[in-house]
Amino acid sequence: MNIKSDILKTAKRTIDLERDAIDNLGKLLNDDFADAVSLIYNSKGRVIITGIGKSAIIANKIVATLNSTGTPAVFMHAADAIHGDLGLILEDDVVICISKSGNTPEIKVLVPLIKNAKNKMIAITGNENSFLGQQADYILNAYVEHEACPNNLAPTTSTTAQLVIGDALAICLLELREFTSRDFAKYHPGGALGKRLYLRVNDLSSLNQKPQVAPDTNLKEVIIEISEKMLGVTAVVENDTIIGIITDGDLRRMLTKNDSFMHLTAKDIMSSNPKRINAEAMAVDAMELMEANGISQLLVEEKGKYAGVVHLHDLIKEGII
Rank of each mutant, 00 (worst) to 15 (best):
V213A: 09
E106Y: 01
V63K: 15
L219D: 07
L113I: 06
L299W: 02
T69H: 11
I58W: 07
F33C: 04
S101R: 04
K257M: 13
D23S: 14
S68P: 03
V47F: 06
N208R: 02
A192K: 15
E128N: 13
S272M: 13
V237C: 00
N119L: 06
V111G: 02
N30T: 03
I224T: 06
L25G: 08
L86V: 06
E288A: 14
T125P: 01
S68K: 08
L113V: 02
N60F: 07
L25H: 05
K317S: 13
N293L: 03
D183N: 15
D85I: 07
K4L: 15
A185Y: 07
S68V: 12
P155L: 04
E175Q: 15
Q135G: 00
E302F: 05
I316F: 14
L29P: 01
V236G: 04
T156M: 02
S260L: 13
V284W: 10
N273C: 07
M121K: 07
S101P: 04
L251K: 01
E178T: 14
A36S: 15
E128T: 09
N152I: 01
L132F: 02
K275I: 10
D6H: 05
G319P: 09
D314E: 03
T234D: 13
L17H: 02
D93L: 04
G102H: 03
V63C: 15
A307R: 13
V111Y: 02
L173I: 11
S130G: 09
R13A: 12
L231V: 02
I242P: 02
D35V: 11
Q297S: 15
A79L: 11
A123G: 07
K108H: 00
D248G: 06
D137A: 08
I245Q: 13
E178L: 12
V63S: 12
L88F: 11
F75D: 01
I226T: 01
S38Y: 08
T247Y: 07
I22S: 06
L298S: 09
L113T: 05
V144L: 04
I62Y: 00
Y138A: 03
D35T: 09
P105K: 10
G304I: 05
L29W: 12
I245C: 00
R276G: 12
K44N: 14
V37Y: 10
F261Q: 02
K100N: 15
K44Q: 14
T256S: 14
L110C: 03
N293M: 04
I245S: 06
E221Q: 13
L29E: 13
D23V: 08
E238Y: 09
N42M: 05
V37N: 08
L219V: 11
I243K: 06
P72F: 09
I242R: 07
F33R: 09
I320K: 06
N116K: 15
N239P: 01
H188V: 08
P189C: 11
Q134V: 00
F131G: 00
A148P: 00
L264I: 12
